[in-house]
Amino acid sequence: MVGLKFSEKHVLGGILALLVLAAPAALALPKYRMQAITQFHLDDGSGLAALDRRVMACSYCHVKETGGAPWNPFGEAIRATFKANAEAGGKAKFPEVLYILLESGADADGDSYPDALEVWAKTLPGNAASKPSEALEVVQARFEAAGGVRQFEPQQAQKK
């Protein structure tokens, strides 16, 4: 008659512990950030965008790297768009609000490059120190050739 050896018990216990620990942790990944990454076509499909702050840092919209209040000019513009939509009786969700803002041609940080253009050029629409190196007209032409603001239209809106 053979019982489990001490080491075997620990191996099996380790397996169990791994199974328990392998349960997906409730990672604090802000919903809005992930929605924006998808909408801005920044997700390469690897699934790593959720974990890689270089893809989109919280400071894309917030002042602090940890998120929360206060917001930078682009974040404040999103908030104002939410509020205006609600005041008009709308019930727009984040992707729709983001598109409403980009489509408006607004330039939140006042660097003369519209927010949509900066999103496409991968510079920061809420930071005037971050802007495309080429002239506005050049970038604008390339942006339009690439599909313009409609490339950021939420999937649901495209179906309508």
């Binding site: 919903k31 939410f82 609600a86 019930k91 727009a92 729709e96 609000v97």
Partner: peptide, 14 residues
């Protein structure tokens, strides 16, 4: 999930 309605609450919570 999804009840963390910091923005556009009516659209989300409804």
């Amino acid at each position: 999930g999804g009840f963390d309605t910091h923005a556009g609450q009516r659209g989300e919570q409804d």
